[in-house]
Every structure is written in C-alpha cells, then in structure tokens.
Write a protein that binds this DNA or RNA. Structure first.
Lengths: 90, 90
DNA sequence: CAAGTATTTAGATATTTATCTAAATACCGA
DNA sequence: TCGGTATTTAGATAAATATCTAAATACTTG
C-alpha cells in the first residue's frame, strides 16, 4: 500500500500511467512525452514497476511497459471503505 | 490532485483517516492513537486539511476533525479512468 | 568485431518531508 | 487575572526524493 501510494505521488508517474492507458509503450516512447532525461524516466518507471502498476518486458533492445491495473483494485478497495454506502446503505 | 496524493502518501495520515471513519475526533484524541509528538500530529492534520480530506472545527479549546470524503470522489474518478469496463463494456 | 541505439546503473546534488523541542496562542475555570 | 490544558507555530535536523551527468550494459547491424 505504501509502495502504491508512493508511486502515485508524482505527477510525472501519473501521466505515465495515463499514457499507458492507450497502449503499451517502450521506455523511449514514454521518454519522448517528457522533457526529463532518460535516467530520470527510467527511475520513474522503476517505481511504477515496484508498485506493480506496470510490467516490463524486454524485446531485443527495447523494453516495453504495460499497464497492470490489478493492483489498483487494492486502492479501490481501500477507497471504498470510506464510502458510507458500502457500510450502511441509505 | 497533487495535494490529495501527497496527503495520502503517508501511513500515519492514512491511519488518521481510518480513525475518523468511526466518528469525528479532536486533535488530542487523534494524537492519543499515535506515539508522535503533538506538533507532528498537528502537521499531519494540516496536510489532510489542505487536501480537503478533513475539515476542522474549533469548539472552545478543542479542535474537532471530521472526515470529508467528497474529495475522494475525485480520486475515485481518476482511478476509474483506468478500468477498461468504464470505456468499453465487455 | 565495431559502431550505433536503447536502457539502466552509479553517484552527486538540491529540494522536500517527517520529525523533534521550545515557544506561542487560545481557551477555561477558580 | 492566573495556572492549567489544547493546539499550533517556529525553527532545526535527518532522511527521502527527483533530478542530472557520466558510465555501464545489452542488443543490432554492417
């Protein structure tokens, strides 16, 4: 949960997730959408992977990142515990 | 959105929200659940307030904090954009 | 194998953050 | 008004984070 919130606590990483919503992208393609250096992008992707928000797959020279939303369900569950409707319908 | 994720990116603050799920509590009552100093607790509560996750109400010497979940809907919305089912039913 | 491309690792640095103690503020009751 | 309680503000510090450049690694192609 900590790792998840940490990964989400950065606008660049959230933008990356939104990019990957369309389709899987290579590290380079992702980097093209930002003005940060490649190592910085790589570091952000690493944090997203640590949180299991993305998976990475190396194909030759390229590393393709794919959105993995299963972990978001955990967040969704955490969120819903605050929704009174889930506890006491009314 | 930034402020919201920042506020949520701390286990103590998340625990505070879960405490407040039961009922509104004063700053002191909240502090009693943790081993941090009062100023530290106050600082965390300030961040939760900045994110609009809680409201505070001073009654005499006491400041009561109340959960305000309306802003969580924003987070829920952000989250649901990743759920394929919301885009393409299947 | 050498040169070029894609990506990551290493190491440095500036900023942000969580925490503390000490002090200030605000309120209450005698 | 004074002493006590509740909370916040100020200021300091250690740890975490985002970023960079330089270098390393891994793959591809001539």
């Amino acid at each position: 949960m900590n790792t998840l919130f940490k990964a989400l606590n950065d606008p660049t990483r959230r933008a990356m997730l939104e990019l990957l919503r369309e389709r899987p992208l290579t590290a380079g393609e992702i980097a093209d959408h930002f003005t940060f250096s490649k190592p910085t992008i790589s570091h952000h992707l690493d944090l997203l992977r640590q949180a299991d928000l993305v998976t990475s797959d190396k194909q030759g020279q390229f590393v393709t990142y794919t959105l993995n939303m299963t972990v978001m369900d955990e967040l969704l569950g955490w969120l819903l515990q605050f929704k009174p409707s889930s506890d006491a319908p009314q």
